[in-house]
Amino acid sequence: MKRWLPLLLIISLLVPALLVGCTSGDQEAAPGTNGEEADEKKIDFPTKPVEITVLFGAGGGQDLIVRKLAEIGEEKLGQPFVVVNRTGAGGAVGYTYVKDQKPDGYNIVASSNSISTAYHKGNMDFDYRTFRGIAMVVKEPVSIAVKADAPWKTLDELFAYAKEHPGEIKIGNSGVGSFTHLTGVAVSKFYGADVVHVPFGKGLAVSALLGEKIDASVQLAAEVMNQVEAGTVRLLAVTGDKRIEAAPDVPTLKEYGYDGNLTLYRSFHAPKDTPDEVIAILEEVFKYAVESEEFAEFAKELGVQVSFMGAEELDEFVAKDDADTARLMELIGLKK
């Protein structure tokens, strides 16, 4: 009996495995299942799941947004989206992976300003031109915050103090070369103040602010909003063109006189040789998902601004943004 047990086990495993193997093979071999739709388009896309590479960890802002859009967009796409986190080296790991895939639209990347920061920092030897845009989905303002009981009520006050006490004010960000770091440096240069920028891991700057290890934090607005609502942290400024919905009293950097945008964008990109027709199909899917009621609500909970932009416009936008980022990083001395 004992000798037969493993064999039985193997057979019981083999039979369903072969069955599953066959059926999944059928699916792959029969692309015309929803034939009507396929006839309308010039090419047959998609015939299998589309994989989205997320450059940062699960549960983070980028990841949640992508997973939500994937969930909404799937119906429209007619095939599942598979979300895979490929993290590391400020996004370079994921970008490198997607770049090396076949440009057929089945491998796309959830991109952001990290395409520029990772390149200019020297983490990868190719830049945004390796990819082409599909759609921009959201913009995220960056916030500058101090603890609720700090003496500074405005950004001007904070930096006036910083100018009088060079090297004393410590501002936390999410890591050297991260977008929040660039923002922090841009603002301190704007005021001409000598402050210490302290790089923290993801999200830990907030905890350091609450623990009074630093005087101010530069973080994505979404990452500090619950502290703001709880009254433990005070926002001094946000980036972007207009004030944010969740904190209408907080002035933008523009209102403080800073001329520049400094907003994080999140978008989808594909390898640059991906055919136009495929891009168009994916663009349509994401347009549908981004403009859906469901996503609007989701974005509000998350504290990000829904901001759709089509493929063509996005390419121009990224080119300009990359040039801006390069200039900024040159200024800080981070550009390789």
Binding site: G59, G60, N226, E229, A230, G231, F298, E301, L302
Partner: peptide, 18 residues
């Protein structure tokens, strides 16, 4: 717990003092 935080935020719950 970072993933848990994400899940909470998705459901409109903001963990924190409130």
């Amino acid at each position: 717990t970072a993933i848990l935080l994400g899940a909470l935020v998705i459901h409109g719950l903001r963990p924190g003092p409130l």
